[in-house]
């Protein structure tokens, strides 16, 4: 499995457009929010750390979601068929893809955090920085499971559209682009149960000098379970 995971990581770092999209895009959006749009009005410092977390979360869930959903592409080109006639168990293949995707998550997170420090003037303790990276990594897990499910549900053309659509929808609904406090009340209620909101909430609490809510971790575990069941179901069907 280690050798196969290595192959996955090599592939990941050699797909620059894909990596740039997933790592650079959140940074660019961060700069747009805090420097061009000047969101936050009376309290720019708070807005800068809030959006740093929002965009780091956005980067983390994108990395997890897209890495896993690329299974659809690999099914289309026949790579999974090639692997099917080797001793590699299909389950090991999926786990390797999940690991490769999640190993890349901190890369996306750290770049946004660095721009928060260098360009947003955010200052936190070392413990807080480490905690944020760890929590966002944790928060990306349900999205990796969702990505695997998408990878086994669709053909490649529709999978890319579906992944992008779900990515934006879940990010916006989770308050990563605009805080859920600005949403109409009914939408806000739904938003506060969506997976990206719980992932963001873990980090927002840290920059607000509060302890992360255990309920958010529990809710993320529930979402991971829901998406995991979906992934296992689709995977099982495709394997037959």
């Amino acid at each position: 499995m280690a050798a196969f995971l290595r192959l996955e990581l090599i592939r990941l770092v050699r797909t620059p457009t894909y990596l740039i999209y997933l790592i650079i895009f959140p940074v660019v959006m961060y700069l747009m929010f805090v420097h061009v749009l000047n969101v936050g009005g009376p309290n720019p410092g708070q807005a800068r750390s809030f959006y740093m977390i929002s965009m780091a979360t956005y980067g983390a869930i994108g990395m997890a979601l897209f890495s896993a959903s690329r299974i659809a592409l690999e099914r289309q080109i026949g790579w999974t068929r090639t692997l099917a006639v080797t001793p590699l168990a299909p389950r090991t293949y999926v786990i390797s893809k999940l690991l490769a995707g999640t190993i890349a998550v901190p890369a996306a997170v750290v770049l946004v955090l660095a721009s928060g420090v260098l360009l947003g003037g955010v200052r936190l303790t070392l413990a807080q920085w480490v905690l944020i990276v760890a929590l966002l990594w944790l928060g990306s897990i349900p999205f990796a499971a969702l990505g695997v499910g998408i990878g086994y549900v669709t053909k490649v053309e529709s999978s890319q559209g579906l992944t992008v659509g779900l990515y934006f929808t879940l990010a916006i609904l989770g308050g990563l682009w605009y805080p859920v406090e600005l949403f109409p009340a009914a939408v806000r209620t739904i938003a506060e149960y969506s997976p990206a909101y719980f992932a963001g909430d873990l980090g927002w609490r840290v920059v607000a000098d509060q302890a992360p809510r255990l309920s958010s971790i529990g809710a993320l575990a529930a979402w991971a379970l829901i998406f995991g069941v979906f992934a296992v179901w689709r995977y099982g069907r495709a394997a037959r």
């Binding site: 280690a2 050798a3 196969f4 290595r6 192959l7 090599i10 592939r11 050699r14 797909t15 690999e74 289309q76 080109i77 026949g78 790579w79 999974t80 068929r81 090639t82 006639v85 080797t86 001793p87 590699l88």
Partner: peptide, 22 residues
């Protein structure tokens, strides 16, 4: 296989090593 796909990003040697390890 007739329709067994390969991945483009890796070198021939990297691919063979990963397969051998299985």
């Amino acid at each position: 296989l007739q329709d067994g796909g390969l991945v483009d990003e890796v070198t021939v040697g990297e691919m063979a090593r990963a397969m051998a390890a299985l």
